[in-house]
């Protein structure tokens, strides 16, 4: 059960996209998500899907990873699209029952919602599949850096994020150990109704929290003994490097934006 919970589902690789600077990937993924809302006619959708198809091809990863990434969210997308379909008035009315109706506008908006969601989630999946959680944390830190002006503790936040990521597998292991220990004592985690299952979580969570607090205390002592005095005067071992490939990626997405705007008016 816990194995499926791997954070970010990063798949190591050496593709062009894997090697892009995480700052570039974060900004470009966000940019793509914003311009996904500029889609209007079928030409724009063809363009965007062709683009994302190209991106998926560039990751060098098997298509099944993307299907699995989108899988859990597909029902949410379908549900949202159906709501749009049944509650949007306007245009020609094909069918109606009480407040429910299917109209030509409804069909259009629900299709748009469905396709845009699909684009957004696919792009987010590309980001998490090709970028290590640590790299994402580095990228987030770099992008948050301007916030230092308003005395936001950027370096501390970044260290917290990186320590949290580093402890995810450790705590998952511990949870597994506790679950096995509780199972050996007769606790059933996968049987019974919702209430019974929730109750079974309590003897898992309490030792997990106690353990985590103990670890945090140990870690703080170790960090202090190694001279950690907060963020002042620290140097950095890991630095991000902006390559030509990153600039090319920015240019590509800007071109995509321009073409998209042109197609909108055709």
């Amino acid at each position: 059960m816990l194995e499926q919970l791997t954070l970010g589902r990063y798949i190591p690789g050496h593709s062009w996209l894997h090697r892009l600077d995480p700052r570039a990937k974060l900004v470009l993924a966000c940019y793509f998500i914003v311009i996904a809302f500029l889609t209007t006619n079928w030409l724009t959708y063809v363009l965007m899907f062709a683009f994302i198809g190209g991106v998926i091809f560039l990751t060098g990863l098997s298509f099944s990873y993307f299907v699995r990434g989108i899988g859990p969210l597909i029902w949410l997308i379908v549900f949202t699209a159906i709501l749009q379909l049944l509650f949007t008035p306007g245009g020609h009315i094909y069918w109606h029952w009480g407040i429910l109706m299917i109209t030509s506008t409804g069909i259009q908006t629900s299709t748009a919602v469905f396709l845009r969601f699909l684009l957004i989630i696919t792009m987010a999946t590309v980001l998490t599949l090709t970028t290590a959680p640590l790299a994402i944390a580095d990228g987030v830190e770099a992008l948050l850096r301007p916030l230092r002006v308003i005395h936001f503790p950027v370096a501390q936040t970044a260290l917290m994020l990186s320590v949290a990521l580093r402890f995810v597998p450790t705590l998952l292991d511990e949870a597994q150990t506790i679950m096995n220990a509780q199972r050996a004592r007769g606790v059933e985690f996968n049987n019974g109704g919702l209430i019974k299952r929730l109750r079974a979580i309590v003897p898992l969570l309490i030792p997990l929290f106690v353990g985590a607090i103990g670890r945090a205390d140990d870690l703080a002592t170790a960090m202090e003994s190694r001279g950690y005095q907060g963020a002042t005067n620290r140097t950095r071992y890991r630095v991000l490097k902006w390559h030509n490939a990153d600039t090319i990626a920015v240019v590509v997405i800007l071109v995509l934006n321009v073409v998209l705007v042109v197609l909108r008016h055709m």
Binding site: V163, R166, R215, D218, M223, R226, G227, T235
Partner: peptide, 21 residues
């Protein structure tokens, strides 16, 4: 486990050096 600060081996070894500037 409880004294491993870095996300990778190299990062962890560098932690004290980073602190010392």
């Amino acid at each position: 486990d409880n004294q491993f600060v870095g996300a990778t081996v190299a990062d962890d070894v560098a932690f004290g050096l980073e602190n010392a500037g």
